[in-house]
Design a protein around this nucleic acid. Structure first.
Lengths: 143, 143
DNA sequence: TTTTTAAGTAGAATGATTATAAATAAGAAG
DNA sequence: CTTCTTATTTATAATCATTCTACTTAAAAA
């Protein structure tokens, strides 16, 4: 069995998507790293290997990956979006102080969705949820 | 008893904040309207009454109201932030098609926060949650 | 009134993201 | 291996929300 990146790119190829070094590098960076990077972080990390790569390439590929369901976008209001190639059901806890994002798992919030359906009459597709607070590192440090 | 807007502005006045027509108009617009407007919507709605008002004034006042706990900001990743002067505990359901935002109430998600605390070690301050789907109007229309 | 200074205004600056047009290179076909 | 088609990349301009800056105006205290 190949690794996740090659598997994903092979699947993309069957839909007319071409395999390029930049594309491969962006996807494997996202899949290797567990830090939910921004576009700029991805761009800077690949700068040494692809000195001529344009930021637009990063944006274009991320959009493609999003549509293919390979990554998800974490769009917090402030600043830049973050991207997560871990597609299994999980939630995020975000540190108010240092911005660290920690993953955690939990029963899906079915009763909340039930509430929403009952009170609003919406056809519910899904939800989004994050927890905010202070990470152990920041909480532990008495400056 | 005065109305909510005057009450709120009177309370602000006690902390050295001045009462201006623009400020009053922005706050009462937010409190009257139940549509979670963007800065631009607020600005355009008041354009006829205040032809010389600057967008910066809207931003400045919203920041002030946020700090005073009179409104909350709904920062969805795409596009502009929305503002809500309804401060009682509630959640939002957002229509994928028309963007409508419906309010609903529900038990607070205490078990999710418990999960987060246990798995991440965070000191949890609060959470954010929205439900996404299709509103009754959009779902009902077979175009 | 006068004075103090918070608030408003206009416009420039920033930062993330998207659009555009030309150059490049994947991959198919011969 | 060479040619051809067109997806992709690149560089740059454009857009959009938001913030900043310097100056003017006007609340409200004295």
């Amino acid at each position: 069995m190949r690794n996740r990146v090659e598997e994903a790119l092979d699947k993309l190829k069957t839909t007319g998507v071409r395999m390029t070094p930049q594309r491969q590098a962006i996807l494997s960076f996202l899949m290797d790293v567990h830090i939910h990077p921004t576009v700029d972080e991805i761009y800077k990390s690949l700068e040494s290997r692809f000195p001529n790569m344009s930021v637009a390439t990063v944006y274009n590929n991320l959009k493609l990956f999003l549509e293919a369901g390979l990554v998800r976008e974490l769009a917090y209001g402030d600043g830049a979006s973050r991207f997560d190639a871990d597609m299994h059901e999980h939630y995020h806890a975000i540190c108010d102080q240092c911005g660290t994002i920690a993953d955690f798992e939990c029963e899906p919030l079915s009763d909340i969705e039930a509430c929403a359906i009952q009170e609003t009459g919406f056809v519910v597709r899904g939800h989004r949820m994050e927890v905010y607070g202070t990470c152990p590192e920041c909480a532990g440090v008495k400056h």
